[in-house]
Design a protein around this nucleic acid. Sequence first.
DNA 1: ACTAATGTACTAGTGCGATAGGACACAGCA
DNA 2: TGCTGTGTCCTATCGCACTAGTACATTAGT
Lengths: 133, 133
Amino acid sequence: MFAFRLDSRSGVPTYLQLVEQVRRGLLLGYLVDGEQLPTVREVAAALVVNPNTVAKAYRELERAGLAAPRAGQGTFVIAGADQVPPAVHARLSARLRAWVRAAHEAGLAPEQVRALVTTVLDDERTTARAEAA
Amino acid sequence: MFAFRLDSRSGVPTYLQLVEQVRRGLLLGYLVDGEQLPTVREVAAALVVNPNTVAKAYRELERAGLAAPRAGQGTFVIAGADQVPPAVHARLSARLRAWVRAAHEAGLAPEQVRALVTTVLDDERTTARAEAA
DNA sequence: ACTAATGTACTAGTGCGATAGGACACAGCA
DNA sequence: TGCTGTGTCCTATCGCACTAGTACATTAGT
């Protein structure tokens, strides 16, 4: 069963964290088409948040066409066609894990690793936007 | 002069985004010790946010010991000893950029690249925590 | 002394995420 | 037919991020 995680220090609203995790799971193939998400009450109990917060996340997923509720049964995800092939995913994630290990061995703290990743990704975003213009 | 950027869709409060960017700049050496940050009014005008929001970010930086205000002059950063050496930083960021390019050439959308990076980093965090226990 | 620029402080108000508690409609099962 | 579990809806409330406008203390430069 799909499991959610929360980072209370990130400043990101709880319901958005849940939405993003499902979205990521779908993009990367961790969630297959038709798979059932944990029920609202299960998630609320596991994460110690209000059921309404989880329901808000599920409603947002439904609005985005990424999930559909079935009364009395639960909520089930709907996978799009834009998934990463398992082979590509395995190769890229392995290479990225190797990079993280290298950074760690170079003496970088986890916080510095995240800072470097964030900076590089932000730079890529702005350069991509600049090239598009 | 150091420049700030905002991502309104992230859900992260404005003042926290500013704090994080200064923190990252210090960790990665983009900000050197004693360097002046743009003034509260400059940032507020450039990002079209309330000066109080910027002031709150600067106050938070001061509280964290990462910056010090000088009345009438501006706010100046205080660098710690935990910076990444430029050579290491250059090597790691180049390798990471290469990975991002490879992911792009493999057909991954920027959103999928971010999803993959987030997932790998989150996994590293949990495995590191598990090893520590 | 005066001016300009800076960071700071204060009060009031707005919007929204989150909580709390309760109620409802629908599907599956005995 | 009832029971259970599911998602959904409603109202009220709290806290906090953010806005708005203004005023003040300090410093540098003239």
